[in-house]
């Protein structure tokens, strides 16, 4: 349990513990769905900062997911890049 409900877990998207908890309760959802509904872990840093905390929190809501599977998918670009870079411009 986390006492302070306003505690920010994902800094980039400013998602609080309370938002995660109420969303998980309301939708009894998977880790992936919880991420998509709240945007936790989907901000500028790509979840590098809050990933471990999110995993632990999600596990406390919905335990016993298959541990061999990474709960929150990694997707490119894994670093912030401009559209120009992705489009092949490097000036």
């Amino acid at each position: 349990m986390i006492e302070n409900k306003q505690l920010i877990i994902c800094r980039c998207e400013e998602v609080t513990y309370e938002q995660l908890q109420s969303t998980a309760r309301q939708h009894t959802c998977s880790a992936r769905e919880l991420k998509l509904r709240t945007r936790a872990g989907m901000g500028f840093c790509g979840g590098r900062t809050c990933r471990i905390a999110l995993d632990a929190i999600m596990d406390s809501f919905i335990p016993d997911e298959n541990k061999a599977v990474i709960p929150l998918k990694y997707q490119p670009p894994i670093r912030p890049v401009s559209f120009g870079t992705v489009g092949g411009r490097h000036d």
Binding site: N4, Q6, L7, I8, R11, R48, T49, R51, A53
Partner: peptide
């Protein structure tokens, strides 16, 4: 490796 913080009220 990357570091993981433990969120604490006021950590921002």
């Amino acid at each position: 490796a990357a570091e993981y913080p433990i969120p604490v009220p006021g950590w921002t």
